[in-house]
Write a protein that binds this DNA or RNA. Structure first.
Lengths: 143, 143
DNA sequence: GTTGTAAAGATAATGATTCTTATTTAGGAA
DNA sequence: TTCCTAAATAAGAATCATTATCTTTACAAC
């Protein structure tokens, strides 16, 4: 997994630096779709000299190279998701909590639907559900 | 429709001001999910003295009172949608274009699916699809 | 070692959004 | 209609996430 990350960086001709490793690990550990601020705070404990600009730049690169993705929200702060497989998001209606939701059966159902029911003048590349609601426990589920 | 808007404001105990009317009309006219900036630019032609802060405050109030909704995007600029019925969004992969997509049959399909397949520890309130892809014509469809 | 280049650090700049304060206005009551 | 008052607006300062700039560092190629 960590190796996977290194390989992917190198495949793109990008250097594997301690900062990049730390940022990627931070996103994995902070598994609730962290903001840049969350990531910086997390990294600062082990890596006090990291620069804010570096974090943003590295995040942009990761997104561009599809190592992570940005999560769409109604807030003006960006959030990041290290998870790349086709999945959906559960948004808490009351808090900032966002969880990933995987459901292959649902994906197939939707894919089949759109195979039969094309959208006029639009070629679908990706479909993601935003599911808003309430978590029954406030505690974050452990992975 | 305009009356509807006035009534809704008054029902909430809010005053019907020229600014609020202008902002609401702007969002309706600029029917591609405008940013605050778009709205300000549009209004400035007829209403040159409107204040930027007012526009933001009024937009917040509209969202809070559910007269409009914010559209989730991966960008740090907020966009607004005057359309309230349950609908989805088509995001252009290359441009900033966002279109509404209504599909009652799809909504039912998904609703049925989740009736049978509950999400553990989560109570669904709303489901919106983010459909990313490419429009076959660059021209905005006329309503 | 020197050179070249990508990356990181530090910090200034930007720009969307929010806040503050004084002034104006909508809309109800007199 | 006029008056009153809370609510709303205007103007501009402040905030804060993000971006840009410029310098320094790391490291590979020569």
């Amino acid at each position: 997994m960590a190796t996977d990350f290194r390989n992917k960086l190198q495949a793109e001709g990008l250097k594997v630096t301690p900062q990049r490793v730390a940022i990627f690990e931070a996103i994995l550990r902070l598994n609730n779709h962290p903001t840049a601020e969350d990531i910086i705070a997390f990294i600062k404990t082990n890596h006090p000299n990291i620069s804010v600009g570096t974090v943003y730049k590295v995040l942009d690169i990761f997104v561009e190279k599809k190592l992570i993705q940005k999560v769409k929200t109604e807030k003006d702060v960006m959030r990041y998701d290290p998870f790349l497989s086709n999945h959906h998001h559960l948004y808490c209606a009351n808090t900032e909590r966002i969880e990933d939701y995987e459901d292959e059966k649902l994906n197939q159902l939707i894919a089949e639907y759109f195979k039969k029911n094309k959208i006029k003048n639009f070629k679908i590349q990706d479909i993601t559900l935003q599911i808003t609601g309430k978590f029954s426990s406030q505690n974050k589920s452990k992975k």
